[in-house]
Amino acid sequence: MFKKILVANRGAIAARIIRTLKNMNIAVVAIYSEADQHLPYLKLADETYELKGSIAKDTYLNQDRIIEIVKMSGVDGVHPGYGFLAENSEFSKRLEEMGVKFIGPSTKWINLMADKNQARQIMANYSMPLGKGSSILPDDEEEVKKIAAEIGYPVLVKPANGGGGIGMLPVYEESKLISTVERAKNTSEKYFSDSNVYLESYFEDPRHIEFQILADAEGNVIHLYERDCSIQRRHQKIIEESPAPNISFKEIEKIGEQVQQSIQQIGYDNVGTVELLRGKDGNYSFLEMNTRLQVEHAVTEEIIGIDLVKAQIESAAKIPLRQTSRQN
Score class of each variant (00 low, 15 high):
R326A: 02
A316Q: 04
V155D: 02
H223D: 01
K176D: 13
K43G: 00
S188E: 02
E34P: 09
R10K: 14
E200R: 02
I55W: 08
E240N: 09
L308A: 00
E97K: 15
Y32A: 03
R233T: 02
N270L: 00
I31Q: 11
G167E: 10
R207P: 09
A317F: 04
S262P: 05
E68N: 13
T273E: 04
L321N: 09
F286D: 06
P206A: 01
Q118Y: 14
Q37K: 15
D269P: 03
G104T: 01
I31A: 04
D194T: 08
L130Q: 13
A217S: 14
K52C: 06
V181Y: 03
I178K: 13
S179A: 14
S33G: 05
L44H: 14
G162K: 05
P170T: 07
P40H: 15
K176P: 07
A8G: 01
E97M: 10
L321C: 05
R292N: 07
I147Y: 10
A56Y: 10
Q212T: 02
V299N: 10
R120V: 09
E34D: 15
T107Y: 12
D281H: 15
K318T: 05
K318V: 07
Q264G: 07
V221I: 05
Q37T: 02
Q264M: 05
E174F: 03
M72I: 05
Y225E: 01
Y82E: 01
S73D: 03
Y268A: 13
D194F: 14
K250N: 04
Y153D: 04
K4T: 00
V309Y: 05
Q260H: 07
M24W: 06
P245A: 11
L177M: 03
S248Y: 04
E218H: 15
L39G: 00
R234V: 08
G163S: 00
N290W: 14
